[in-house]
Design a protein around this nucleic acid. Structure first.
Lengths: 133, 133, 133, 133
DNA sequence: GTGGTCTAGACCACT
DNA sequence: GTGGTCTAGACCACG
């Protein structure tokens, strides 16, 4: 369920964070569901436990999961809460990209067409895994 | 004309690269126009010449500028060429952001509205500096 | 009567200790009254008996309860004795917090006002359960 | 300026965080002032650089400092901003302690007297180091 | 078994 | 030189 690309320039712990956030956003990981233990996930992915630990610590600090000694790590939010948490960032990122396109004299129609195509593509392809709880 | 934000988490050399590309895209820096020398710019910005050197080296490698021994560095492309060079990256970045929004169950209408607002905003605000050469 | 919050970052055994001390302080648990057995409480709270065992051991070591082989665990102090035992800690904790507030340039009047409000709030809200034995 | 107690139960990285926050709150560390480098401070305190790194990373995440590769770590807030950031936590901690005292049947007058004494003590003793910038 | 802290030491990216 | 990431392995606290 969680996989990493060791050759990516993105830090491993960052990849894990993003993947967990994605899985929560999609509803695949549900509220209070237990995550694999630090050691287990480290073994599965073939990386050092400290790296997992770091990812989990940041996720906890961001309120996405909660970890308790002797028990494990658990999802703290449901998909809806996660989406609300992330949407401001997503929209400002959209703004940033659109601004770049404007600056490059790309017309509004071209951008909107691209967006529509992307939505069609998502629907046809079954969409980037979304599960409603 | 070129400014950097020391508090930004984007590397300084990266900020310089982006700013030069932006200025070329907008037509503010014209083809064959000379850039400030490494030392001059370093002095102006109050940063290490090595950092400027690195930015220029990458820009040259990307074909955005060319350098001549003892003469200086010059813009290699006009605004149109620059736009063609960058647009594939911009569109794929747009795709990526839209995918994220789709995954978060954000409707197509909301995204398109946001894009339209951004275009309006750009026009009213005089637009993100665009000069046609 | 004893409840724990699994989401709290305070260790479970610590939560139990605090709650028992609180109940004794308030006079709800009276001297020589019997506590639920380790197994019973573990079952009720749905947690590991070892955890209860640890809490009781510490409480006994602190002189708050006493245990008798095959009989069970019992409260060792009345509310008054408990209060005398704990008040030095409470006051030094108060000192510590006030010192922090002073360091942050918070005025004396603001702190005292806050204390008064807290007392009013306690009285109106029926007060944090206090029973005089 | 920064010291740690290796025998304390409080984690070393936590001690460093608190000390830095304290120094900023007091105005001893001023905005944009550079902190000792990770390696330097590690050497001075005789602990592992990773531990300092962790402390600095959390401080940055909390917006207290900002760290930039190749340059160093710097204070992000002035004393006033720091105080505003921390005061809600301080007051709620005060509430918690006062609630405990109420629960122990400690009278309002006794608590207020203690607060006043603490303020006098601070003034006479020169106060817990406060510097206004 | 779980998570959390710390050390030692390496390598990379940036200035 | 700076900060940032990762590994290997140890020890502690909690359940």
């Amino acid at each position: 369920m969680i996989q990493i690309d060791p050759r990516s320039r993105v830090a491993i712990y960052e990849q894990i964070i993003r993947r967990v956030e994605e899985l929560v956003t999609c509803g695949i990981l549900q509220k209070d569901e237990q995550l694999p233990s630090v050691r287990t996930l480290a073994g599965t992915l073939g990386i050092n436990p400290n790296t997992i630990q770091k990812a989990y610590a940041i996720l906890e600090q961001d309120g996405v999961i909660y970890s308790r000694q002797g028990r494990g790590s658990f999802i703290a939010l449901d998909a809806h809460e996660m989406q609300e948490k992330r949407s401001p960032d997503m929209f400002s990122e959209l703004d940033r990209v659109v601004d770049d396109l404007i600056r490059m004299s790309v017309g509004q129609a071209a951008v909107i067409l691209r967006v529509q195509l992307r939505y069609q593509h998502a629907v046809e392809g079954g969409g980037p895994d979304v599960v409603h709880s």
